[in-house]
C-alpha cells in the first residue's frame, strides 16, 4: 500500500490490536498522520469497543435463576433417588489419586457427586492408572503375564479357603476372608448370565437399553479362572447394593477393562441399576446409574 491508498478496517483493526508486523505498522501510522478518512475509521473502531463496553450487561432474570435452581435440584435428586445412600460406591478408592483429595481425609458417602471418571475426557487419575492394561486383544505379553498372575492369586486364595473350610486344619482362612472371598453359592451355578463381549462401553451406551448389549453376547459357560474372579466381584457388588445381579458382561469402560453388572431395581418397569467395576479390585469405575433393559 502506498501513501495515497487508504487502509481498510481490517488493517486498521489489526494495527490497533498490535497484529501488524513492524514495517507495515510503521507505514500505516505514517499514513494515518496525513489521512483524515483513515483516522476517522480508526476512531470508528475505537468507538466499537466503547459502545460494546457501554452496553449494559443485565442480571439474570429471576425466572431463569429459578429454573436453573430447579434443574440442579433435580440433578441432585436423581442421584439420590437413583442410587441409594446406603450403597454408595467406594469413594475413598475412587478419588484416592485425585488432586483435590490429597490434603483431605476421605469422606464417607458423598452421594450427590457424580463420579469424576467422567467419560468424555478421562481426566480422572485412577481410571488412567489402571488402564495400563488395555483391550484384551492388545495386551502386551508382560502385562498379560501380570494379569495372569493376579488371576492365579485369586484362584489360589480361593483354593486355600476351600482347603481350610474342608477341615484340613489350616488357619489361613480368616485373614484371607476379608477381601477376596467369593461366596460359595456363586461358584458353580451362577444366578446371572455371564458374557464376555469385550465391548468398550461409554456413558452413552450405558444410557441406552442394556438388553441390546448384554442380551446378545454369548453366555460364558464354565471358565473357572475368570468366572470365579467375576463371581467374587458380583457377590461383592450385590452385597453392596442389596440387589440381585442378573447380567454380567466382561468388557471395557472407556477403554479400560471393566465388568458391567445389571441388577433389577424394578423388573416390571425394566429399570435396572448398572454397576461398572474394575475386574481386579471390584471398585466402581463410575457412579452406579439407573439404566433400562
Amino acid at each position: 500500500m502506498t501513501g495515497d491508498t487508504h487502509y481498510d478496517l481490517d488493517i486498521l483493526a489489526g494495527l490497533a490490536e498490535g497484529l501488524l508486523d513492524v514495517s507495515t505498522a510503521r507505514q500505516v501510522r505514517e499514513h494515518l498522520a496525513i489521512c483524515d478518512p483513515c483516522g476517522e475509521r480508526l476512531a470508528d473502531l475505537a468507538a466499537v469497543r466503547e459502545v460494546l463496553a457501554a452496553t449494559p450487561t443485565p442480571a439474570m432474570p429471576m425466572g431463569v435463576a429459578l429454573r436453573i435452581d430447579q434443574a440442579l435440584a433435580a440433578e441432585a435428586e436423581s442421584r439420590r433417588g437413583g442410587v441409594g445412600l446406603a450403597d454408595a460406591p467406594d469413594w475413598d478408592e475412587l478419588m484416592r489419586d485425585s488432586p483435590w483429595e490429597r490434603q483431605r481425609p476421605p469422606v464417607e458417602a458423598p452421594e450427590p457427586v457424580r463420579l469424576g471418571v467422567v467419560a468424555t475426557d478421562g481426566t480422572i487419575v485412577p481410571a488412567q492408572r489402571r488402564s495400563a492394561r488395555r483391550a484384551r486383544w492388545a495386551v502386551p505379553a508382560v502385562a498379560a503375564a501380570a494379569a495372569a498372575a493376579v488371576v492365579g492369586t485369586a484362584v489360589l486364595s480361593t483354593g486355600l479357603l476351600a482347603a481350610g473350610g474342608g477341615g484340613g486344619g489350616s488357619t489361613v482362612g480368616p485373614p484371607v476372608a476379608a477381601s477376596e472371598v467369593p461366596s460359595k453359592q456363586q461358584e458353580r451355578t451362577r444366578p446371572y448370565a455371564l458374557t464376555d463381549s469385550g465391548y468398550n462401553y461409554s456413558d452413552q451406551e450405558l444410557d441406552k437399553p442394556l438388553g441390546t448389549f448384554l442380551g446378545v453376547a454369548p453366555i460364558v459357560a464354565g471358565d473357572p479362572s475368570e468366572g470365579d474372579k467375576v463371581g467374587a466381584c458380583v457377590t461383592k457388588v450385590s452385597s453392596r447394593t442389596k440387589l440381585n445381579v442378573f447380567a454380567v458382561d466382561q468388557g471395557q469402560y472407556n477403554g479400560q477393562e471393566a465388568i458391567i453388572m445389571a441388577s433389577w431395581k424394578s423388573k416390571a418397569t425394566k429399570r435396572l441399576r448398572i454397576d461398572v467395576v474394575d475386574p481386579f479390585n471390584c471398585k466402581n469405575l463410575r457412579k452406579p446409574s439407573l439404566g433400562r433393559w
Binding site: D8, L9, D10, L12, A13, G14, A16, E17, L19, R41, D44, L45, A47, V48, R49, V51, L52
Partner: peptide, 11 residues
C-alpha cells in the same frame, strides 16, 4: 480485530 472491523460501519 476482525469483529470490530465488521462492526465499525454498523455502529
Amino acid at each position: 480485530a476482525r469483529g470490530r472491523a465488521k462492526l465499525a460501519p454498523i455502529l
